[in-house]
Amino acid sequence: MQLYNKLSAKEREVLIEEAGEDRLTLSFYAYAKIGNPQLFRNHLFLAWDEMDVLGRIYVAQEGINAQLSVPAKRFQEFKDFLDNIYFLKDVRLNIAIEQDAKSFLKLKVKVRKKIVSDGLNDASFDVTNKGIHVDAATFNQLLDNPDTVCVDMRNHYESEIGHFKGAVTPDVDTFRDSLPIIEKDLEDFKEEKNLVMYCTGGIRCEKASAYYKHKGFKNVYQLEGGIIEYARQVEQQKLENKFIGKNFVFDHRRSERISDEVIAHCHQCGKPCDTHVNCANEACHLLFIQCEECAMEMNNCCSEECMKINDLPYEKQKKLRKGKGNSNKIFKKGRSEVLKYKP
């Protein structure tokens, strides 16, 4: 019984190219009590591996958080499978605005303590007492209300390339960092203002809204389906688009364009640019914003040191990486000292 990947990302990429079939990139989440996450994880892997589903899925006792790529011709089969799981029946599926058959190249289903690292003690408050879910039209009306404070629940490298007009964008590296900062900054508005939150697909707001209600905020709202669903409803209903720039996504595409505005800058030269890349030196793999001109000049690297390493024979590069791991805590997603125009 195969419970783990046997193909590398490169091998899978070749198979996808040879198949030449359309795939759908989508995401979903659900909070539910899962008694045996490991058993549930194995069940998902076996079924989805057979369906040629690829993606990154986290399972915990509190629920599931999934970003996936599904063969378009097997979407209904995939949907039927979800509907046969009681807490996933008719779950919202956020289908990507921009599709790419290579958005994911492996199927990874991992058991975690939590489906989102929030640092919260869930036993200390009612996680089911959530904020009011609103659609795109209502969200726009709330944004127009002077008594509204709109807060981006994402990290700095996400909001840097795109966010809602007038939103508070905390300068944080992780979701768990943002929770106490927002509470402190908005302490004086707990009763009189509308606290309106948004994130990529809704999952971070789901927990945050309950947390802020527990902390005394009276009027708490969250954008249902996040930026992904907002963009879809804006297009379908011909609403005003109040989101500027790109929506950062956690797959090989890295982003989806929601509006034509470019609000970020190349971290190396400062020119307007909102294209995230990873440093070509695999020992670094730093996520940063790089324009085409700098990519050419720097050979897709973040620094001259990384260029030198990247020019070494592959075996020498492997020796340098031996025993060392990349860490977001070290590289801070674009805050590296090697970048001249860092956020």
Rank of each mutant, 00 (worst) to 15 (best):
Y4L: 15
S8G: 14
V14F: 09
E17K: 14
G20I: 08
D22K: 15
G35V: 08
N36H: 07
R41C: 12
W48P: 03
G55D: 01
E62G: 03
K73T: 13
Q76Y: 10
Q76N: 14
E77V: 10
D83A: 10
F87A: 12
L88V: 06
L93I: 15
L93P: 05
K102Q: 15
F104P: 02
L105R: 00
L107H: 05
K113A: 12
K114Y: 09
N121I: 08
D122Q: 14
F125S: 05
A136N: 01
A137R: 12
L142Y: 10
D147Q: 15
D152R: 06
E160S: 07
P170S: 07
D173W: 01
S178V: 09
I181F: 04
K184M: 02
K184T: 05
V196R: 00
G201M: 08
G202S: 09
A208T: 03
K213D: 08
K213L: 14
Y221G: 01
Y230H: 11
Y230N: 08
Q233M: 14
E235L: 07
E235C: 09
V249D: 03
H252P: 01
S255M: 15
E261I: 00
V262R: 06
A283L: 11
I289G: 01
Q290F: 02
E292G: 06
M298K: 11
E304F: 05
C306Q: 03
I309L: 10
Y314F: 13
K329W: 03
E337N: 13
L339C: 13
